[in-house]
Design a binder for these strands. Structure first.
Length: 112
DNA sequence: CTGCTGACCCAAG
DNA sequence: CCTTGGGCCAGCA
């Protein structure tokens, strides 16, 4: 059983990824794998990052609310700082290792 | 069409 | 805890 979502195959994967990210609530974060799953391709976590890389700067999408499985920011350099600052502005805290506590700030789509 | 790439993830050791 | 190795799959040259 290879796939998760059989229907709506016409939808662009990209569009659904962006939609899923847009649904992340303020003050919460989601992982790349989580977004991939929500977009219908549970194993396309890598692609999520690829899409975000190409994202326009003036996008209304909260790209910074996406982190990797360990609760860490995958970006490097100035981009790392930009994302971290944006998250801290929403009240999200990092531990000494620069890791977000996903049990605390991880988004659970089934919870309002 | 083929091949390489990567803001990832997981299981083993 | 860390390191390896393999898998995945949408873009892009």
């Amino acid at each position: 059983m290879p796939n998760d979502i059989p229907s709506v195959p016409e939808d662009n994967f990209r569009q659904r990824v962006l939609m899923s990210i847009h649904a992340i609530p303020y003050g919460k974060v989601a992982t790349y794998g989580q977004i991939a799953r929500l977009a219908g391709s549970s194993r396309a976590a890598r692609q999520v990052g690829g899409i975000l890389r190409k994202l326009p700067k003036d996008s209304s999408i909260p790209w910074y609310r996406v982190v990797n499985r360990s609760g860490n920011i995958s970006l490097i350099g100035p981009d790392y700082t930009r994302q971290r600052t944006a998250l801290q502005d929403e009240g999200i805290t990092f531990n000494a290792s620069g890791v977000i506590d996903l049990a605390l700030y991880g988004w659970d789509p089934s919870q309002p």
